[in-house]
Design a protein around this nucleic acid. Structure first.
Lengths: 352, 352
DNA sequence: TTGTAAGCGTTATCAT
DNA sequence: ATGATAACGCTTACAA
């Protein structure tokens, strides 16, 4: 076999030589150009030569010449949150099909700014930002990049979003429908559109039902399990303890559950808990978590498709969100952590 | 401000022009070459010019010239398993510090072969393979690549591994120490070193204690929650039902827990369950999962360091595992899902 | 110490 | 239909 693995890399030149054609001809044939006008017989020879030599195009070189890297950046808030790995999976698949590579960036390890910097240096053709606060990034950070936003609508950049206000509304209506009147919300302080809207939708639906969200019952904490634990602990010691709580995401909700268990508060007997996202974990806790399902994969896939399409359409720096795609619907998933409000609200437990 | 964002990209040439020096000089200064011999005053001018123009090096072009891409591939079995996202996080941090980018590949979405192909085309400087069965990949797939293996020791490639046999042994000893005699194991059928060794260590420790692993009590299923559910279901209907089971990883263990709950089998009362990995999820189920902790981040970090070092050392295709680093220690984490064996083994439950 | 020239592997624009 | 030739942006001898 004519493997020349340890020697020099095989280039178009080698292929050209073997096929007995000029080097650019090879490029024409192998560049899978749709309508490359080259004689069938020539093409045949080239292809065969390439195969025989085990030729692999050098994407780097191609990128340099075409002034495209065929690489995309994808920045997510935290890969340890399964929700985002789902978004990634959705995007990755689409993007791979189109021949792009993905530079995955975890904003919890390195700041978005630094990531953007790196991505720029690597000449990415575009960037998907998922809930990393694009607005707060400053215009310069995104200047000249092809950007698509996930879950942070903007006038400036196109993107896709889930129906976050709807999620909050659904949570509230579900709880209120169960007879709860003293509701609470926990979510992160970060200025992320998704969380803000979930909260807003929740509050609005409460208002619509004539209920108020006392400031004591609005807890700010990181959108993690630990944050959920902390927030729930704070809620549990309130003199007017809520009977139900909506958590900004499932991770927090699971933390809330843990805190209840630790405090001997029964769920959903004494406390109803509802999350948001519907990650796999939601079905792994006991009781299983009631939550509002957000289509993570779909979010990722759509964003990717949108970006890829834009790149193909040669809109190098196209401003403005095109057709402001309407939000992806979310759905209530009733499971075991929400139940009817007790006849009379439970008083704070004594210790023991 | 002299921002020329929408115009042509800023290149070394522009910087050279503004600084009034030749283009290679700029390259010399900005290429952060350790001992680049260039007049302090010149360097100063260049740096200032670069800053003023907002110059950003084009990593692609640099790669082409240096015949290096400063990109690494990282292939993991499944990003939905938090264990692997931890490995990724560990690697990512190290690698980012060294100025490399990571092309993340999920072997559950696309075959390792295709990933390798893509990575080759992108001229990655090296690849980290985590438990994707490098041995079974065939020599050609890895030929000419700089490879580091995680959790699959090989004569051919260097790598790092955890003490998988030790994990199995610890699990067995823990269970046996609690008085269990009828043990079971569940793990995937895939030919992955880690799982094989966990199993082997488990079985050996049983033998050492004069116990046998009946084939009925050796269940093969995917290393997922669903797999764990299926495997546990099968165990529960055995006439000689085990009193304790070691699960190949935590995901399976959680599945096992769910299956027990669904069947009304109390854990650890009627069944002890021990997992392996110690992912965050282990502390989120009730009762919390007893497991053997494997240092995921550390595995990723070490592999990355190993690879980066090799690349720096200019060992383009260095064969052979260097110092066959000894395995990273694992530790038993006793939590709530294991307990003493019941005085007399529980008979299979009737229905009701 | 600095500039000149050549080249990295491709693609693109011309003539032919 | 094909083949020279010139980029792409940067690095790296080697010459000045």
């Amino acid at each position: 076999m004519p493997r020349r693995s340890l020697t020099r890399r095989v280039t178009v030149r080698d292929v050209a030589a073997l096929a007995g054609v000029s080097q650019p001809t090879v490029s024409l044939v192998l560049g899978n150009h749709p309508r490359a006008r080259v004689a069938a017989e020539t093409r045949e020879r080239v292809v065969r030569a390439a195969e025989e030599l085990g030729y692999r195009p050098n994407v780097i070189a191609r990128g340099l010449a075409r002034r495209r890297s065929y690489a995309l950046g994808l920045i997510v808030p935290d890969l340890r949150n399964p929700f985002y790995t789902d978004v990634v999976a959705g995007a990755e698949r689409v993007v791979a099909q189109e021949g792009y590579a993905v530079l995955l960036c975890d904003a919890s390890e390195v700041t978005p700014h630094r990531h953007l910097e790196t991505l720029r240096e690597r000449q990415v053709d575009g960037v998907i930002l998922d809930a990393v606060g694009a607005a707060a990034l400053g215009d310069a950070a995104l200047e000249g990049l092809n950007v698509v936003l996930v879950d942070e609508p903007s006038e400036r950049w196109p993107g896709v979003a889930s129906d976050a206000p709807g999620a909050g509304r659904m949570a509230a209506e579900h709880l209120i429908g169960l007879g709860h009147r003293r509701l609470a919300y926990m979510g992160p302080a970060v200025d992320a559109w998704g969380f803000r809207m979930r909260e807003r939708g929740f509050v609005q639906a409460m208002r619509a039902a004539g209920l108020d969200l006392d400031s004591d019952r609005l807890r700010r904490a990181p959108a993690t399990v630990a944050g959920g634990i902390a927030a729930m602990r704070a809620l549990l010691v309130l003199s007017a303890r809520p009977t139900a709580v909506f958590c900004g995401n499932d991770l927090m909700a699971v933390g809330a559950l843990k805190a209840c268990a630790a405090a001997g508060v029964s769920v959903p007997g004494d406390m109803s808990v509802i999350g948001c996202d519907d990650i796999e974990l939601a079905t792994l806790v006991t009781p299983e978590l009631t939550t509002v399902a957000v289509p993570a994969r779909e979010l990722g896939a759509r964003a990717a498709r949108m970006l890829v399409r834009r790149l193909a359409g040669d809109a190098p720096d196209g401003r403005g969100a095109a057709a402001p795609a309407r939000p992806l619907p979310v759905t209530l998933v009733t499971r075991g952590t929400t139940g009817p409000a007790a006849a009379r609200p439970a008083a704070p437990h004594g210790e023991g």
